[in-house]
Every structure is written in C-alpha cells, then in structure tokens.
Amino acid sequence: MARKTVVPFDDSPQANAALRYALEEFPDAEITVLHVIRLPEGYWTIFVDSEEDFPGHERAEEHAYKLLESAEEISSSYDHPIDTTFKRGDPAREIVEFAVTNDFDQIVMGSHGRQGASRLLFGSVAEQVVRRAPMTVVVVHDADES
C-alpha cells in the first residue's frame, strides 16, 4: 500500500528540498502538498466575522495558488502526480490537524534551521509539528542553505 504523505509548502528552498525529497524517496506515495496561509493575530481580529474578512485575504489566496502551481511544476519533473490544497491559520496547528484528519502516514517538511534569538522570536514550525504530530515527521534541510 502506498504511503500517504503530506508536504507543507511555502516555496522556500527548504520546502522545495522537502518536496523533492518526498518525490525521490517515496515514489509510490500519495503526496499532498499543503500551503498554510498564516492569519493575522491580535486583538483587532475580534472585529472580523470570518477569515474572508481579513485584509488582504484575496491576495494571500492568489499567492497560495501560485505556490501550489510551482509545487505541481516540481512534481511534473518527477512525473509524479500530487494533490494540492491550502488552509488558513497557525501553520503548525493546521499542518498537524490536516495530517491527522486525513489519515496521513507521514509529514515531510523543510526546516529553516533558525537558531538563537530568531528561533526564540519566531519559533520553529517544524519543531512544533514534530512535537505535536502522532505520525512520522521527516525534516529536510536544504544543503545549499546550511
């Protein structure tokens, strides 16, 4: 049986490396590429009724579609079909929830490898996913970025 694999994707070198890794290492896997649109946070969010009311949501969705198109281009070079989708919210939370809800066997994702103060300020989505996900998480570092 083919493994179900979700690859979070933001078109960074790390995400590109993770997608390429998944396509190379799991050629028989069902691969879904997921982009998460990070929603703004803060007290002013109580003034909107839905996610569509956030300023710039249309541009964020257009950007998501472009990112997912670039993932499809990468997969076509491997002659491997993929599914694509996007969610809105906190990236780590949405990635894990999507993987659990859709019965994925594994998550293959890139890591920016932040250290020190930037890691404390921004956190690590990959680290949060590793801690929260009940399935295997493969973290790929882009060799060109190390």
Rank of each mutant, 00 (worst) to 15 (best):
S70F: 01
T85L: 10
V125G: 02
A133R: 10
K87R: 15
I46P: 00
R114I: 08
I74W: 11
V108A: 04
I82S: 07
E61F: 03
F104A: 07
E69C: 02
D103L: 07
L120I: 07
E51Y: 05
A71L: 08
A71V: 14
V137N: 12
R88C: 09
A117Q: 09
S50R: 12
R114C: 03
V129M: 13
E52H: 07
L121D: 01
L34V: 05
K66Y: 03
H35W: 01
V96P: 07
V36I: 13
V129Q: 14
P134F: 14
S50K: 12
E51G: 08
P81M: 08
E41L: 04
E94F: 05
G123A: 07
H57K: 09
T101W: 02
W44P: 02
K66H: 05
F86E: 08
H57C: 01
R114A: 10
I107D: 02
Y43G: 06
E61W: 03
P81R: 13
G116C: 03
T136I: 14
S77N: 14
H57N: 03
A117K: 05
V125A: 04
F54K: 01
P91F: 05
V130F: 12
P134H: 13
F86R: 04
V96S: 02
R38Y: 03
A71M: 03
H80N: 07
K87L: 13
L67A: 12
E69W: 00
E51M: 00
F98E: 11
V129A: 09
R38F: 00
L121V: 11
Y78W: 13
T101H: 11
Y78F: 15
Y65D: 10
Y65Q: 13
I74G: 01
T85R: 12
M109C: 03
K87H: 12
D83S: 13
V100E: 15
P55F: 01
R38L: 03
E73C: 09
R114D: 10
S77V: 06
T101F: 06
R119S: 04
V137L: 15
P55L: 05
E62Y: 09
F47E: 02
K66A: 10
H80T: 14
Y43S: 12
V100T: 14
Q106P: 04
Q128N: 14
S111K: 09
E51V: 12
F98H: 15
I37D: 06
A133C: 14
I46M: 01
E72Y: 04
V130S: 08
E52P: 02
A126N: 03
I82Y: 08
L120Y: 13
T136Q: 14
H112C: 05
D49L: 01
L67H: 08
S70D: 12
D105A: 10
A117L: 15
G89Q: 05
E52W: 09
E41H: 10
E58H: 11
G89K: 03
H63P: 01
V48Y: 13
D90A: 11
Q128W: 06
K87E: 15
F104I: 13
E97N: 13
S118E: 14
